[in-house]
Simulated scan of single mutants.
Amino acid sequence: MEARLAAAESRNRLNNRVAVAVALISAFMAVTKIKDDNIVQAMLQAKSDAVDTWNEYQAKKLKLHLSELGLNQARALRLAVPPQGAAALAEQENGYAATIARYQAESETIMKKAKGFEKQYDDLNFRDDQFDLSDALLSISLAILAVTALTANLWLFRFSLVFAGFGGVMGMAGLMGLSLHPDWLTKLLS
């Protein structure tokens, strides 16, 4: 009889530990999920800004190319027109040259801006990976805890804590902006 009471008490203690672990893990997952969602929104904005900026860059390069064509045509026409028309073409050439210089400078600035948005996206993706790994590891831990509650195996509880610990570390790395990132694992899962 005492053995049954001791076994029931032991099982009850283990179930209490499981319940506390589930509550703590779930609360931590809720906090990291909010941060992860905000990062995903920022990633979408950065990607949108990068695409828009690259489109602007392409438009400037197209305008640059058209101005270069115009300049070349004006130079070719100047050779074929009388001297009084050559002055007008020279003025047009100067306008094209100024436009070309402006588009070249603007293109460089826009390209740097677009690359900045791409870097911002990559940096955010790095942190998103941390939260994704945290979520996956903590979910595995919760699944093991569910089996632990059914089977009352202490070793399963301890095994779940390994996953919870690594998931917690990855979540904290994401929250604190640390550079912890198991590349081999993220490449395997992506």
Rank of each mutant, 00 (worst) to 15 (best):
M1W: 10
E2F: 08
A8L: 15
A8F: 10
R11F: 09
R11E: 13
N12C: 07
R13P: 00
L14D: 02
N15D: 10
N15Y: 05
V20M: 09
V20W: 08
V20P: 06
V22P: 00
L24H: 05
L24K: 06
I25P: 01
I25E: 02
F28Q: 00
M29N: 11
M29W: 04
A30Y: 02
A30I: 02
T32Y: 07
K33M: 10
N38R: 10
I39R: 07
I39C: 00
Q41A: 15
Q41I: 15
Q41N: 14
A42R: 15
A42T: 08
M43C: 07
M43Q: 14
L44Y: 08
L44C: 07
K47V: 07
K47N: 13
S48A: 12
S48I: 06
D52S: 10
W54Q: 09
E56Q: 13
Y57F: 14
Y57E: 10
Q58E: 12
K60I: 14
K60F: 10
H65R: 11
H65A: 12
L66V: 09
L69R: 13
G70M: 03
G70P: 04
L71Q: 12
R75C: 05
R75Y: 07
A76M: 12
R78M: 14
A80G: 03
A80C: 06
P82R: 15
Q84K: 12
A87D: 14
L89D: 01
L89I: 04
Q92S: 13
E93D: 07
N94H: 13
G95A: 13
A98S: 14
R102Q: 15
S107C: 02
S107Y: 00
E108S: 11
I110W: 00
K112A: 14
K113G: 04
K115S: 11
K115R: 15
Q120Y: 08
D122I: 09
D122P: 06
D123H: 11
L124Y: 03
N125E: 11
N125S: 11
N125T: 11
R127M: 12
R127C: 07
R127T: 13
D128G: 04
D128R: 12
Q130A: 01
Q130D: 00
F131M: 04
L133T: 01
L133C: 03
D135W: 14
D135Y: 13
A136E: 08
A136T: 15
L138T: 10
S139W: 03
S141D: 06
S141C: 02
S141K: 06
L142E: 10
L142H: 11
A146F: 09
T148K: 01
A149W: 07
A149P: 03
A149D: 05
T151S: 08
N153Y: 14
R158F: 12
A164K: 01
G165N: 00
M170W: 02
G171R: 00
M172Y: 12
G174A: 02
M176N: 06
M176G: 03
M176S: 06
G177L: 00
S179Y: 05
S179F: 05
L180K: 05
H181S: 02
H181N: 05
H181K: 03
K187T: 07
L188W: 10
L188S: 07
S190I: 03
S190T: 05
